[in-house]
Amino acid sequence: MNMNKNRWLITCRLGLLLTLSLGVPAFAQDAKEGKDTDETAAKYSRRGADTCLKCHDEESEFPVFSIFKTKHAVPADKRTPFAKLQCETCHGPIGEHGKMMLRKGQKRAPILNFGPKSAVSFEQQNEICLGCHATDGRIGWKGSSHDQVDVTCTSCHDIHAPRDRVLAKNEQPEVCYNCHKRERAEFYRPSVHPVRFGEMACSECHNTHGAFTASLLARPSLNQTCYGCHPEKRGPFLWEHAPVPEDCALCHAPHGSIHPALLIKRPPWLCQACHSQAGHPSAGLTGAGLPGGTPSAFLLSGACTNCHSQVHGSNHPSGVKLMR
């Protein structure tokens, strides 16, 4: 155990040293560099958005005017596309797409667009957005679960829409369900978090833009994510119930369950998967304990929790058995 810890300590220190030695000169170097570009002025339009909007009006096949209702179209904010190269900030230089006259039968050359039909790779599409938006929770995008299955920013975000559905708590889950079909059904289970009622969004527990945790959680660990709304379980307590501080998901299914309190199984069997002490903890409980037989305290109503009610731990000096 000590050898492993030493090895880990060395690895960690090396890693931090690496980050530090790259980070300090990186700040200095980063500030001196502008964005690399090999586009030449000749490929850009003559009039910027006015060139594009001559064709892309309200009646066109690809209406775009909704962008003007969004934060991307605020010229007074120097960071936004409309303070820079307007449409071409994201869509790249107009090139041949802006050619006025087409020969008979000739198809218009495409502009850089976003989505599954784009000629540009998913990674390149995302690089355009990340050029400005690689902040906060998106620092970990590269190599994250969504990046690894080629999810693009536009898979979830509506840029040319007055209201980006994924940013609204009550509409966000519908966007996620486009790929996460199982989760749509799971939130119909009898015991759930209030996602399908519009009271909770997926992003309250998940950082979909990239996190190191296995399920892209919003906080550094699963338990820390749960304690955000359930801090009364955080403790530490005098008498701890071992699975609780380790991992809430050892007993609970966060997306819902057919059992009460989002439990993966119900007591007594949830408890008997780990407790086998002689006496009542290891009794084989059958239908003989139902109200029609000999009603059993170990089986009915709360089962084990009829007595052991402090399942998350107890700070009572006499709470050894989680009964006080």
């Binding site: 500030a31 030449t40 002025a41 910027g48 958005a49 909007l53 003007f68 010229p75 190269l85 307007q86």
Partner: peptide, 21 residues
């Protein structure tokens, strides 16, 4: 000490008169 970002094309004529801000 960082220089201001420069655009790759002169946008003086990009008046955005069709833009519906």
């Amino acid at each position: 000490n960082a220089p201001e970002l420069t655009l790759p094309v002169d946008t003086f004529k990009w008046k955005c008169k069709f833009c519906t801000f």
